[in-house]
């Protein structure tokens, strides 16, 4: 099954809405506590990335009994050097964003740690697409 959520750039007040909703859905689907935790943490980071860096974005969540695949597609400045962005502590977040407690450069590394697959494609000046997959721990 598939769900879609819209994310607005700069709307920190509502950052986390998609991850909250997804958490609720996964709980209802009896996904294991540990899988829910890692998916929600990764999704929250990715969601905040759109809010902090992009203008707008769409989160698509595809749930199957074996995996959860999430695609976050945004319109925004794009990432010029993805390898650099993947480094822990690297961040291009503005001072204002950092002041709000975001932009520590932990986002992408945190996502990578929590998900089984992470693919990032980006076009400078157009936007970024993040695909991430968690294989579910089937009991």
């Amino acid at each position: 099954m598939q769900f879609e959520f819209e994310v607005t750039g700069g709307d920190f007040a509502n950052a986390g809405t998609a991850s909250s909703q997804v958490k609720k859905i996964l709980k209802q689907l009896n996904v294991s506590v540990s899988d829910i935790k890692r998916i929600v943490v990764a999704l929250y980071e990715a969601e905040v990335n759109i809010v902090a860096h992009a203008y707008s974005g769409v989160v698509t969540v595809e749930i199957e009994t074996t995996q959860v695949r999430i695609i976050l597609k945004d319109s925004g400045p794009g990432i010029p050097d993805i390898d650099l962005a993947m480094q822990q502590g690297y961040s291009t977040a503005s001072p204002e964003v950092r002041e709000m407690g975001f932009g520590a450069g932990m986002g992408l590394p945190n996502i990578k740690r929590n998900m089984d697959v992470l693919n990032i494609s980006s076009e400078v000046g157009i936007g970024t697409t993040v695909e991430m997959i968690a294989f579910l721990n089937v009991a």
Binding site: M1, I25, K27, Q28, L29, N30, V31, I63, T65, L136
Partner: peptide, 14 residues
């Protein structure tokens, strides 16, 4: 919170 113990069944119910 879960709709069913079995995930496929839970998805059907959802």
């Amino acid at each position: 919170m879960q709709l069913d113990k079995d995930m496929a069944e839970a998805m059907r119910k959802m």
